[in-house]
Amino acid sequence: MTGDIVSVTVPSHPRYLCVIRDITARMADICGMDQATVDQVKLAVDEACSNVIKHAYKGDTTKTFSVIFRIREKEFEVVIDDSGPKADLSCLRGRDLDDIRPGGLGVHFIKRVFDSFAFDKRKRTGNRLRLIKRLDRGNEDHHNQ
């Protein structure tokens, strides 16, 4: 299992977010995460992909983006690649949770479950968001039986 990679490319239409969510949940489950964590990871990846559609593509549903899942010995990595203009980081800062207004929650959902959240500056065109979650590998036995 360690080193396994699963990748998917989907159109930038919100109707395909459910596909990403289903794959994300399965991958998190394979990593041995408990159900609450699986749910948090699923929401976080969904939010990151929603941001691609909303911010990178400005709602253009004719593009595509890719999501690559990697299971490593001690971490679960999700890389999201798009071909939009470079992300405006101010869009991804999130609002103060005490400031009750629509929007600005997605980044909080990402940061609460992933240990690392960063754009790969080496990517010349488009954006590459890399999310990393450290794994507690004590729970994976049931997947290997």
Binding site: L43, D46, E47, S50, I100, R101, L105, G106, F109
Partner: peptide, 10 residues
């Protein structure tokens, strides 16, 4: 997700 929540806040 956050867009659903934002809809309810609105």
């Amino acid at each position: 997700d956050s867009s659903g929540i934002a809809t309810f806040v609105e």
